[in-house]
Design a protein around this nucleic acid. Structure first.
Lengths: 116, 116
DNA sequence: GATCGTTATGTTTTATCAGGAATAACGAAG
DNA sequence: CTTCGTTATTCCTGATAAAACATAACGATC
């Protein structure tokens, strides 16, 4: 039947009493940085605007400094800007995530998991 | 507001097309080993018997060799026994889980996460 | 001050899932 | 052949989460 198993997992940043931040929210931040628009970011992630807005709201409340500045009105109707604090969050998470994937691969190759 | 963040996460054994095996199922296996009874294990985990039964069924279908042998009838009404294969599964997972927790602690202390 | 595209938020509907209730099946022991 | 406690399985209902829908607020530009 099953000949191969591999270790899988997820990590996130625990913010105490506030909502955690993981892969999904980080990807959203990256899309926001790319487009400068929350709506565009949500569309590209096939996520409802509402949900994306809640994500951003949660992220900003979880951190001591906002990661995204949203503003409405104006020439383009509004915009979304990643702050330096947001940039640092993205960078830190991606670095840790890379280490984590290395850990998963390493453990997947160990005899224990292969011999179940 | 928030002064401290820490890295958190979960791992599980990916069994391809079959359901994955993680902390919860492993804990159930340990309780089963302890009591020799699926019902008792479910009770102690504050889990419905139904759910526990599905867990065991999924585990056995995910592996090439069953981890638990369930039998009904007899003097005590029935019993649940962990196979050597199940023992190995428990042992392997706990070992990896310990390494993973070490990884989480290590990363939580790195400057990146503390300085967000 | 009218327009426009975006941000902001409330309401309603739908889909999914967890849990409980109920009941059958089983087989050693007496 | 009756009893007993457990395993095995179906069905139903309430809770919760996700999505859809609707609409207000905003402000640079013209």
């Amino acid at each position: 039947m099953n000949k191969k198993y591999r270790l899988d997992g997820r990590i996130w940043i625990n913010c105490g009493e506030y909502p955690s931040i993981g892969q999904g929210k980080i990807e959203l931040l990256i899309k926001i940085r790319e487009h400068g628009s929350l709506r565009q970011a949500a569309l590209e992630m096939k996520m409802s605007y509402r949900q994306a807005w809640f994500h951003v709201s949660n992220i900003n409340h979880s951190l001591s400094t906002p990661a995204v500045i949203l503003s409405r009105g104006g020439k383009d109707g509004g915009k979304a800007v990643i702050t330096p604090s947001g940039e640092k969050l993205i960078d830190t998470f991606l670095t840790i995530q890379a280490d984590f994937e290395h850990f998963l691969n390493e453990q997947s190759l160990k005899p224990g998991l292969l011999e179940i």
